[in-house]
Computed example of a mutant assay.
Amino acid sequence: MPESGASQSPVGQSVPPPLSETIRVAIVDDQAMVRQGFGALLDAQSDMTVVGSAEDGSQVVDLVRRTDPDIILMDIRMPTLNGLDATRAVFSMPGDHPKVIMLTTFDADEYVFSALRAGASGFLLKDATAEDMITAVRVVAEGQSLLAPSVTRRLIAEYVSGPKVAKDTAVLGQLTDREIDVMTLVAKGHTNAEVADHLFLAEQTVKTHVSRVLSKLGLRDRAQIVVAAYESGLIVAGS
């Protein structure tokens, strides 16, 4: 992997160089080989350290208290407490919260959309390449969400077809027409560059609009923009 500049990763994000500060990572997965393999990979990076691991979601709250991670790699399917409920438990804790990347086999997991609603910053396939895994941790550590356009579109098609909650259209009244345009395209899985091309805007202008949408609606990241777009009725599954 290059040490400077950026290349395109299969997860749909530019591969960032190592960060200046060490990223503290915790791994929660019921498979020991997954914990060991991911741990060895991430510990080998100059800007990452694995501070702890757990084999079940019921151990997550204690893990967070003991190790104070920046990022949790969280398996969705675990026997005693699944990753969705464990993520909810993390975000119910007082104080600052670590960012959560859900690990999923995707085709078998119907919980991805709910995980984003629970507070996860994105998701990563468990068979992701080493480059994808490293990129995911750096991208989320920098405050972005891990929603590759191709995976987002598939998520929308497969897991948002049924009714989730009552539509709350009132939230859209806080946004300008242009902010709604940007939110719509982001929720459909477009990158900032694609949104800029579609709306004939500078990419920096799109970033500003995204920041305003996040601020006005009290959202953490682009993952929650997807959730809010569906819950408000701005986007309808299959549109």
Rank of each mutant, 00 (worst) to 15 (best):
V90I: 10
I225M: 09
Y159I: 06
D30E: 12
D177V: 12
N192T: 13
S46Q: 07
V15R: 03
S92P: 03
D43Q: 06
Q204E: 06
A166D: 15
D30V: 08
V60P: 09
S211H: 11
E231V: 13
R77W: 06
S161K: 14
A141G: 05
K99N: 07
I101H: 04
E55P: 00
S7W: 11
V34L: 07
L147Q: 01
G37L: 04
V182E: 04
A166G: 13
F113D: 07
T49Y: 00
V206S: 03
V160I: 14
M48N: 14
A157L: 09
F106T: 05
L125C: 09
Q59Y: 02
T176Y: 03
K216Q: 12
L234N: 03
G52W: 12
L217M: 10
E203F: 02
D127G: 14
Q144R: 15
A136I: 08
T22N: 01
V182S: 03
M1S: 08
S215L: 10
E203K: 12
D70G: 06
V139N: 09
G119M: 09
I180M: 13
K99S: 09
A86S: 11
V51D: 04
D85G: 02
Q8G: 01
A237M: 00
K126C: 07
L217W: 04
H97A: 15
L124T: 12
L155E: 15
D221C: 14
I27P: 00
L201K: 06
L41R: 04
A108R: 11
D47S: 00
A141S: 15
I23P: 01
D127V: 15
D109T: 06
T184R: 04
A6W: 06
D132E: 14
T104F: 14
A196F: 00
N192D: 10
S46A: 11
V210N: 08
G52C: 07
A223C: 00
K164M: 11
K207R: 08
M133S: 08
S9T: 07
V50W: 11
G173I: 13
L201I: 04
R138I: 12
R24S: 07
T87W: 06
I225W: 02
R138Q: 12
Q13S: 01
Q45C: 11
A130N: 08
R212Q: 13
S7C: 10
K164W: 12
T176P: 05
V186F: 08
T104G: 15
I27S: 02
T104S: 13
E231F: 12
